[in-house]
Simulated assay, not measured.
Amino acid sequence: MRTAKRGAFIVLEGCDRSGKSSQSRLLYEFLTSNGYPAKHMHFPSRTTEIGSTINSYLKNSKELNDQVIHLLFSANRWEFLKEMQNLLNTGTTLIVDRYSYSGVAYSVAKGMDFDWCMAPEKGLLRPDAVFYLKAPIDYLIQRDDFGRERYEKKDFQSKVANVFDRLCEEQTEFWHSIDASQSEAVVFEDIRLKAMSVLNKAKHKPLCLL
């Protein structure tokens, strides 16, 4: 069912330390300061019981097998489906730091099957746009705090980047590659311009599912 004016669903993806958190915050602040209803979200959301388990795993204080943690990441996104639908349908734009694509990229990088990893995401909301912050891994590992969490290892991040590249190539209709090795201001201006176009196009479109 079409709504009169809905918010846009924008996701920022990329390897660790590619600038997703900073750029998603900047975009959220730009929108709200210019009168656009917006909400900033981050996955995994560590506020729920499932999110707390994920947090323990990421901080290396809990061990889980690869299939279990993959499904927990997916379940964490499902926990917020209704809230996200309601916000979008009432005109709020969602700026989301990581989504289903991170879940798939990180699990496939471990050697898991791509289609198996995508299966639990079917039925979740499809973004109107994914901004893929892309930069050489050798550049990213020089950024502050790299290596603090479980997946922040050079070889592993290279494998993650390969999966993101595949997703970007296969879903060109709504994926946008952004050169994240540029200055924060230049990256943001690129994202800002693309985001405003996405907001205008999303107004009268129905929500789509993965």
Rank of each mutant, 00 (worst) to 15 (best):
S24P: 03
V187S: 07
L64K: 09
A202M: 04
E121G: 09
S56D: 13
S177P: 04
L94E: 09
L12A: 05
A185L: 05
S33V: 02
Q142Y: 03
Y106M: 10
T92M: 05
I54G: 02
L167H: 05
T32F: 00
S45D: 15
G19T: 03
M84Y: 08
T3P: 04
W78N: 01
R2P: 10
K62V: 07
R2M: 15
G7I: 10
K203H: 14
L64Y: 08
I191F: 04
Y28N: 12
S61M: 05
V96N: 08
V187R: 02
W175C: 13
T3E: 11
D138L: 08
F174E: 07
V198N: 03
S22L: 11
S197D: 12
D97I: 02
A195L: 01
E79N: 02
D165R: 08
K201W: 01
V187H: 01
R6D: 13
H70M: 04
R77P: 06
S100I: 15
S22W: 05
K5Q: 13
S24A: 09
Q171P: 02
G91I: 13
E170H: 01
L58K: 09
E63K: 09
V198E: 01
S22I: 12
N55I: 00
H42L: 10
V186P: 00
H204I: 02
N65M: 11
V68R: 00
D66V: 11
K62N: 07
K82M: 14
G123P: 00
K20V: 09
K203Y: 07
S61Q: 08
L94T: 05
L26Q: 10
M196F: 08
I50F: 13
L133S: 07
D145S: 13
K110F: 06
F73G: 02
S100M: 12
R98K: 07
S100L: 00
R46D: 08
A119R: 08
D145T: 09
C15N: 12
L94M: 06
L140C: 14
R77D: 03
A195W: 07
R150T: 01
A195F: 03
P206L: 07
R143V: 09
D97Q: 05
N34C: 07
E173Q: 15
R98L: 01
L193D: 11
H42N: 14
I50V: 15
A119C: 01
A135I: 10
L81N: 06
P37I: 06
A129C: 15
D113N: 11
K59E: 15
Y139C: 13
H42Q: 13
K5N: 13
R192T: 01
V68H: 00
S45K: 14
F73E: 07
I95C: 06
A195V: 04
A129E: 06
F146W: 05
Q142N: 11
S24I: 01
F146S: 04
Y99W: 04
S74K: 03
E13P: 03
N34G: 05
Y28T: 08
L125R: 08
E121Y: 06
F43S: 11
K194T: 03
L58S: 11
E29H: 09
M1K: 13
G111S: 09
A135F: 10
Q85R: 15
T47Q: 10
V108Y: 10
I178W: 10
L210T: 15
S21V: 05
